[in-house]
């Protein structure tokens, strides 16, 4: 590491660069940025709350449909008739739907938030 420092040691460059006019960011910038951070944090909190709530309702609904289908299947002794297959298909598509929905939802919120 020291070798690198020595290899590139250049007093001319160092003195030139150190005398450059450098603009310093003012406190206004700091305050404005902190305001943005606060706003973003509050927004994120609200959105996350909504997301969590809607996720909860959605997955509860899926679970209920699944449980209902299971009860129906057990009740009608599996695959005895075409009518018994319908709940299985419903269950399958509900799970598929939830996976697709979840992925898209996550991607959407990620793109909105950051």
């Amino acid at each position: 590491m020291e070798n690198d420092k020595l290899e590139f040691k250049d007093d001319f460059i160092t003195s030139v660069l150190k005398h450059s006019d450098r603009k310093e960011l003012l406190d206004d910038f700091e305050n404005a940025l902190m305001d943005t951070v606060h706003t973003s944090y509050a927004y994120k909190k609200v959105i996350t709350g909504i997301l969590k709530k809607s996720m909860f309702y959605f997955f509860t609904a899926i679970l209920l449909i699944g449980l209902f289908s299971l009860v129906v299947i057990l009740d009608r002794s599996i695959f005895k008739s075409l009518a018994a297959v319908v709940p299985v298909i419903v269950l399958f598509f509900s799970i598929l739907g939830s996976v697709v929905f979840f992925t898209n939802y996550k991607r959407f919120f990620q793109s909105v938030l950051w």
């Binding site: 960011l25 910038f29 940025l33 943005t36 951070v37 973003s40 944090y41 994120k44 950051w114």
Partner: peptide, 15 residues
């Protein structure tokens, strides 16, 4: 440059 710094801080905060 100011905008970049602002974006970078926001990214750092979120990440």
């Amino acid at each position: 440059a100011e905008e970049v710094v602002q974006d970078a801080f926001m990214k750092a905060f979120n990440g």
